[in-house]
Design a binder for these strands. Structure first.
Lengths: 208, 208, 208, 208
DNA sequence: GATGAATGAGGTTTCATTCAT
DNA sequence: AATGAATGAAACCTCATTCAT
């Protein structure tokens, strides 16, 4: 709706940004920040090097915008899944696990980028780049924790562990299974394994 | 004992290697491979740049030797802990979880390096550098899995999930709690949290 | 004619290449490959160091392109002179001797470069750089030999020596006189001396 | 005789110098001055690097001493051959040509070194290194010239060309044939070819 | 006197960034 | 507004030379 209202110039600009992002995502996720040059991105995006600098102040800004965009998209999906109130707490968490799998498995190159940023490899890039994403990630964990907390309050779950740690646990478990899937999709099907894992998880914390 | 038998020259050489490693570990773990220059390492280690190249063929070789050394030290401890037969399967896994915490919490800068290498950020460095460590990691996971398998055979654990996935799960959970501890040691004490988590884990898979 | 048709960009690029070549020729011929740094060439050519690497992949490639260019130019002249069919065999060889002198005496710095490459000093640079030039030189010697052979067949020359050796002989004699001229142009005028030498040469092999 | 009188220390020192020279000659003649490192020479000569610097002030001094030694040995032989008064002028020059071939063909690695120094490749090394050898070479050419001059005075040779140029000519011709021999000894036997060439040379300048 | 570990100046090369066209 | 040639700081690495043992 709104986009159609945008002047052609503006629309074209956004499209160009998208093309740059697409090229950059491919390259960064495959080779890492320091092994990709601005020339490489320019060539892959079919723009002149100068054009990249019209859109982004420098390499770091491009990288940050890219990662932020991916993270926003990703967290948006996760938040949508977990906010879906058409279900109880168990359902909301199952929703999140499924959505996480879907987003990642459809955007494999995003995975590496995302893990690099949330799992400490981002120190490869200048300090401070990652704080926003860390914040977004932290916020999401808090929301996940609040779902567990709500479940505990409703006496649907035992309070074995601090809800925040339950959130951390389920997040790290899903990550682990996504990594396995990434390494060998046929051998390690995410949905099946995660399903079993979830069952075990809830059986454990469920109140009978 | 044996070390004292080494000729002085040899001992000094090893000591120097150690000093280089110490400087490199600090810098790499803080800033990442590509943001540390050989000059920086030389300066921190108080050697001339040429001396570094007497000890290591090039930057990559230095990095690889450093990471391999850390990984060996780390896996050595883990293997010792898990191989300890003075206990049943539960005890062996508890041992591993505790040992992992101890090694990491005493070598915080090793953590970042280690996660960078096992969790995919190593693509920042030339391909192939990480295969040996990946292999070591994989071998350890197999051993962990075999402990679970043995517990299942002895009917101590239910077979809810493939033993390999149990290994992956417990490894990823301990990692997650180590990360939390790393970010805020006081707020997130590893041992306590992991203890609760372990209890929950074993209650779940234990056969009554 | 044709050059004017080239787009400005293209012409400028060629001009810049030429400026780099000119600076490099001066420096290499004066100091030798290993005593000239890329920075030196860049400074002399009034370009930034990076610009050199836009034009040539590396130092060796620049050197090779320079030497090949000079060699092509040189052999082109020699071949034109010797292929000139407006004369008998004696005339064609006289043409070659004169042309060789002209090219060299107008491009003194080319001489050192050329002799370094055809006379074995090229082992200073990585192996294989010189094979193309050696081939070009060898081909020329063969052509020179074929002129002698033709003269022998036409019974204009005696067959004292294998035509190839006659070619080698006349080539080495002209080189020697060019060297003398290079050391002291006034004292050792190439044309005069070579004329006498030629006379002596042909008197000797001529059939009366 | 005299050598036996030298104290052991002195004799050993000379022997060591010889070993260094032998290693250096092999390496320099094969790879060129700039592609041979002092470490390489030390290793091949089985000395410590420091020892080399006890014998020679620096790399250049070692190279210069080596080349001078070779040149002295070479010119000594040539001078002996040409000074042999048991023959007329033709015989003395024949002697020189034969001796030159013998010395070179028994010391092939000397050839490259020698040509590098007399034929301009020495500009690869710092200026001034070569002047002494150039002088020695020049002196020899003068002596060769004087033999021709003497032959002309005795009316054995015609005066076609300045005796100095005759000397230059015969020297360059022998060099050329030595080069051919070096490239393919079986295909281009020096003695045979040079014999024919000499015959032709003297028939030409001989007075009947 | 011999040794060889240590030194560091200086070489080659890369690549993020600028700016005239 | 887009281009891409030019820039030059800074990276990696070599090797002639020194000097404490």
């Amino acid at each position: 709706m709104e986009e159609k209202r945008l002047p052609r110039r503006e629309r074209e600009k956004i499209a160009r940004r998208g093309e740059i992002f697409a090229a950059a995502l491919d390259l960064f996720s495959e080779k890492g920040y320091h092994n990709v040059s601005m020339h490489e991105i320019a060539e892959k995006a079919e723009f002149a090097i100068g054009t990249l600098y019209k859109f982004f102040e420098n390499k770091e800004a491009l990288y940050k915008a890219l990662v932020m965009g991916q993270a926003l998209k990703f967290h948006d999906e996760l938040n949508k899944a977990i906010d879906d109130i058409c279900g109880d707490e168990v359902q909301r968490i199952r929703n999140y696990v499924r959505a996480k799998g879907e987003v990642f498995m459809q955007n494999t190159s995003m995975i590496r980028l995302y893990f690099a940023e949330t799992r400490g490899a981002s120190f490869n890039i200048k300090a401070g780049l990652d704080t926003e994403i860390q914040k977004m990630y932290e916020d999401f964990l808090q929301k996940l924790a609040s779902v567990f907390e709500s479940g505990i309050k409703k006496k649907r779950f035992q309070k074995i562990l601090d809800p925040y740690y339950l959130a951390v646990a389920i997040d790290s478990l899903t990550n682990a299974f996504l990594f396995l899937w990434l390494g060998n999709p046929e051998k390690h099907p995410y949905s099946e394994n995660v399903d079993i894992m979830m069952k075990m998880f809830f059986e454990n914390i469920a109140l009978r």
